[in-house]
Design a protein around this nucleic acid. Structure first.
Lengths: 338, 338
DNA sequence: GAGTGAATTGCACAGGTATGCAAAAAGGCG
DNA sequence: CGCCTTTTTGCATACCTGTGCAATTCACTC
């Protein structure tokens, strides 16, 4: 029942040529005559032969596999990015081996070791960091790593983020210009660079305008935690504007404000998010938010990764992509705001 | 700069034993003495050795890679399933190679051929079918395939779905019992079994109650198409209830009804979806919907796949998982409905 | 047709691991 | 200690392909 796998030797035998000839026909840029190519292709088609990528990578040293580590797909920003990564990389002849890691720290390192067992050509981590020890092991093994939407000081790690500090600052300016007096922040996870940078930028922006926030609480990038924080926030401070650390939490915040507390957004409270996930444009939320241009971020990440796969001595770069504030209906727009 | 990869031979040399000994230490169930194991492990740790999965799979014939083909991640049902798949399979020592295929037909086959080049141990297709020709090639190559959330007549293909016909029928009964008189259906893509089955079950249920639908239109599982269909539907038929082929479209339908047409859901129109994605429970939509128990479906899919990887002669089964109607606030609930 | 250079082909080996088989070591028993 | 059984170890090979090298063929020119 279980048929034997058809190998290049079988094709060679049928076509009456050597195995190397078959290999060359399937290796772009190798030296083969038209006649030979035709004969081999005919034989290959007849037998249904396709080169074994694993055996090939054993000898070339490249697997054409990219490892992608991602913590959670609940926030729609990441499925969106995953879909883009997969499409772009497929176009370049690479494929994605996905590793989920619940939680940060410990688990991430174990998962990346498993990844290296597969001889991946490169690693992309979405919203996760890694230990210094592991970073140096990757670098020693010649496996380039790019952090997507996450910053880390280590020089061996490349990274692509948006300018989160500037984004946070811009949102502060926007809310202040809108005449809000009681401004609060439901921050992203403070264990992440994005969460810290957005908060720092936001507070710096408020400070520059001489405004003190009424409250800053942690939302941990979790919808539930953010929702709970919102209840407490309202009970205690009655803010008239909330900057939420990402869209995913912002939806939870809006739901609590509208449907539990019976408030109007933006009538009673303005809400601003961060990311501009597709859902932010849906009428139910119509969320004003700072866009992270995920298409550009993905494209740049892949470029950097492939460049370093091609020439391993290229230094790891850290890049920021600029994003705009997208004005929608969840926050009062200052008059004359451009 | 680029250090040489450390192999089992290096470890063997350092430990003063043969390469086969090293191999046996890293092969569960092989015959090794405690002393030998200890010496080898010490040497391996010192050099940072880990077995090369690709070389291993070349000889064992198993790659411990599962190919996952998925059409689009926009519908949150699929990221959710992907996350579950990855977690469950990681627990079993497998990993997922992801392939996106935009659109159906042509592209799917090409993608699955690429997948087979990686010598995957099994294939899961989420919301995608495949050609008969390719199905027989997979079966000939001994690669088990399980269709997730998609049915196809082919006997060589296993599949896991929910009981979509029964689900559709149940929704019909629910809407009729609710006293709705002008019932419409925005159907899922009719090229898919789920789209057809839900529609057929729904129409059969209406028919059994002696009710004619005022309109049945195609939504193609696209938010935009469904939204457009809703505008036309309202203009022409003014339905008082709409069954939408999945939750993802239902959100678009509700947005149009509420925010473009100024209608009340469920006051003017009841809306029922299908899937029960996490978002369906969010207050903004609070969607009544038929749950597809994705945890169970994923678990069953993996079980079937692993079983067939273990013993290739097991016949492909077709399974249905039952799901409940989840009552929420987007549709009028009949009095005394259980 | 001989001679030249270029293009094509085959040979042999390498890449890192698992495993059957035979040899060696260890253990048990009288 | 000698014999036999069981366990452990090493040797050699196979898995499937890509590629350097040498041999062969081809295409031209004089």
């Amino acid at each position: 029942m279980a048929e034997r796998k058809v190998t290049s030797l079988d094709v060679a035998a049928l076509a009456g040529v050597s195995q190397s000839a078959v290999s060359r026909v399937f290796t772009p840029g190798a030296s083969v005559s038209k006649k030979m190519a035709a004969r081999v292709r005919d034989a290959a088609n007849e037998l249904g032969y396709r080169p074994n990528v694993l055996a090939r990578s054993l000898i070339t040293g490249r697997s054409r596999i990219i490892g992608l580590v991602v913590a959670y797909l609940e926030n729609p920003f990441y499925p969106d990015a995953l879909e883009r990564f997969s499409t772009v990389l497929q176009g370049e002849g690479y494929h994605i081996l996905v590793f989920m890691t619940s939680g940060a720290g410990e688990g991430v390192d174990r998962v990346i070791e498993e990844l290296m067992d597969y001889q991946v050509d490169g690693i992309i981590t979405a919203s996760v960091g890694m230990s210094d020890d592991l970073a140096s092991r990757c670098s020693a093994a010649g496996i380039p790593v790019v952090l997507f939407n996450r910053g880390q000081a280590d020089d061996r790690l490349a990274q692509v983020t948006s300018d989160n500090i500037r984004g946070g600052r811009r949102i502060a300016e926007f809310l202040v210009a809108g005449g809000h007096k009681r401004i609060a922040h439901v921050a992203g996870w403070q264990g992440s660079s994005t969460g810290r940078d957005r908060k720092d930028g936001f507070l710096a922006g408020l400070d520059a305008a001489g405004v003190m926030p009424v409250s800053v609480v942690e939302g941990e990038y979790s919808r539930e935690v953010a929702a709970e924080a919102t209840r407490a926030l309202w009970a205690e401070h009655k803010p008239d504007a909330i900057f939420v650390g990402n869209d995913h939490m912002a939806f939870g915040v809006i739901d609590v404000l509208r449907h539990e507390l019976g408030l109007s957004v933006p009538g009673d409270v303005s809400v601003v998010g961060y990311d501009d996930v597709p859902m932010a444009g849906w009428a139910a939320y119509d969320l004003t938010t700072l866009r992270q241009p995920s298409g550009q971020m993905v494209a740049r990440t892949v470029e950097m990764l492939l460049e370093r796969i091609g020439s391993p001595d290229v230094a790891a770069r850290k890049e920021m992509i600029e994003g705009d504030l997208i004005l929608r209906g969840s926050a009062r727009v200052p008059e004359g705001w451009t």
